[in-house]
Design a protein around this nucleic acid. Structure first.
Lengths: 353, 353
DNA sequence: CTGAAAGCGCTTACAG
DNA sequence: CTGAAAGCGCTTACAG
């Protein structure tokens, strides 16, 4: 199949005048080879442009030198950015990076069932994908290390942001501007309706409100799946409430943009009538002047990769790393007006224009 | 390292009462095995949850069953979406998907230099990454198939959109609305300043203008690197021109958003004062009501993967596939006013807002 | 420090 | 149709 002969370890050994064993050791291990021998072999290898066959090495050692990246989406900024950070340090460390897209719970299940059957990877990092304790234990039994990048707190090593803190920051920003009727568009993972509602980002909202001693109007808390269009629809419900909110907090920037579209189409202005704040600091947030809470996504990927490498080396790294977030004030939030806007309850109109 | 024994082909063979050779053939090849034998072996394999060791198979056959995805960015929607499409069909076809991020020309060069040294992959698909003919030939000599997903026309198999046609459609949309002073913010790849200017997207603009017999004011054509912020700056230059354009065409939606920010900050309105159209139909374009030219990104990834598979199978697929694009009218474009806006040449102000 | 040899888990001509 | 055997290209105890 491949006509051009590739140079093998045997070629290097012959050329350097040593045995296969010595050549191998010279190229890999630190001990057990005379310095001069090692250098000579290395020199020959370089000259011959020798590259070890990964298949053969893996077969002989049992280690695969590759890690699987499990991601639920590839088309959202968050995931691409995360993967970019992970790839950089893993590749740098000499690992192959295998991409696995698991869309739904079944896909996820299939992945964890089949992967360990025959170890194709030494480790897997899940990007904001939930992993059951059972799945995690299964992997560990098979000797594959697991790490989470982003997502909710896990019972295994992870690096993420403090979701509750991020939303607390957003809420406090609005409270500071004098807002009291604050609405929140909560994101729920469609595959995980089992989860407690008042956790993560949602919890942060309640915490901030309680601390500020501002009562939460439950009517102003709506839930929907991730996504701008879904948030736009949720916003329609919020606009049908008798007393409109003066500010809206969305669980992501995409969702904030969706909410803004609904507000705009209803003939209201942002931020004059309703302030809007998102979470993420999506690259486009800057271009649409959206106030948001910035989370360092690439850094989470970078750190998660380092965490994984430390674990593979048998070190004892910090197993629960949370990266800081901070409010980025742009122009979609402003001080609360005294009077509520009540523009004759404009019928939300999504078809027009 | 791995304590739990995995079941090997030997276990299957023994259990099925056949030799290793027969077991292997039964599981792989279509011919040379009695139907009953094949079934029995398959049954045993299933029961034992046998999974072949990829390392061993690869070492024995020489085929890697894996393909490398080479991408220049991971944090932009376009690339994530493309990769998602590629991953889906390649994984489905039983290939491993290795991710390679090559940021700059050196990285790209290093990739093509080292990859073929020892075949880690059977094929590589480059996502909008330029490949020199020399690099392509090198890969082919080593027996690795190459395919391009997206990007400019290549001298090797590819699937992409017709860049010139996409911009032609955008230009024609503006012309149809009565615009004559149309500005264009051209995207240039910082690594490829060598390329002819009037090609791809840029060429489409000139073609449409010539066809409509509308003279192009070269002052209205500005170039910048991809990116919203860069486009925002380019837009500042356009606003400093004595006679403002009535419409702006940006080479991407991100760039269109950047242009809109500058227009907005200058106190002008979109589309009343200046119409804006982008290219892509980025998922967020819908949320900001941006008029654009839609390109099917995921489909390009899907098709490119199918093209690759066909090539690997030795078939003769269409080596130059172009997917259609179409204008999606939203609310950032409108008919040209009779009079030009000349708001006393507002000084572009990027600090305020 | 170095070498001969076995082994990693498959696949595939070569004989029957 | 089926089996014994060699081989894919490394690594690593085991002896020196």
């Amino acid at each position: 199949m491949n006509s051009s002969k590739t140079v093998g370890l045997a070629d290097v050994a012959r050329e350097a005048g040593v045995s296969l064993a010595t050549a191998s050791r010279a190229l890999n291990s630190a001990y057990g080879v005379a310095a001069t021998t090692r250098e000579r072999v290395a020199e020959v290898a370089r000259r011959l442009e020798y590259v070890a066959s990964p298949e053969a090495s893996r077969l002989a050692t049992g280690a695969t030198r590759s890690v699987a990246l499990v991601v639920p989406h590839l088309d959202r900024w968050y995931f691409g950015e995360m993967v970019g950070g992970l790839e950089e340090v893993l590749r740098e460390a000499g690992h192959d990076v295998l991409l696995y897209h698991v869309g739904d719970p079944e896909g996820r299940h299939a992945f964890f069932e089949h992967l360990p059957a025959r170890r194709k990877v030494d480790a897997v990092v899940v990007v904001a994908v939930p992993v059951t304790d059972h799945e995690r234990r299964r992997l560990e039994l098979m000797g594959v290390t697991i790490v989470a990048a982003g997502g909710q707190d896990a019972t295994y090593p992870y690096v993420s942001i403090d979701d509750a803190a991020a939303v607390r920051q957003a809420t406090e920003h609005l409270l500071r501007l004098g807002h009291r009727r604050i609405a929140m568009i909560t994101a729920v993972d469609p595959d995980r309706t089992d989860q407690p509602v008042h956790r993560g980002r949602t919890r942060g909202f309640y915490e901030a409100m309680v601390r500020a001693d501002v009562p939460v109007d439950e009517e102003l808390v709506v839930a929907t799946t991730w996504g701008g269009v879904q948030a736009a629809e949720a916003m329609e419900n919020l606009l049908s409430i008798r007393e409109l909110p003066t500010a809206v907090l969305a669980h992501s920037d995409e969702m904030a943009l969706g909410a803004m579209r609904t507000i705009r189409r209803a003939g209201l202005r942002v931020p004059e009538d309703i302030s809007v704040i998102g979470i993420d600091d999506h690259p486009l947030a800057e271009l649409v002047d959206l106030t948001t809470v910035r989370q360092p996504v690439r850094d989470q990927g970078l750190q998660a990769a380092h965490l994984l490498l430390a674990l593979l080396r048998g070190q004892k790294p910090n197993l629960a790393q949370k990266l800081p977030t901070r409010v980025v004030v742009r122009s979609t939030t402003t001080t609360a007006r005294e009077k509520q806007p009540s523009p004759a309850h404009p019928a939300p109109d999504t078809t027009s224009h």
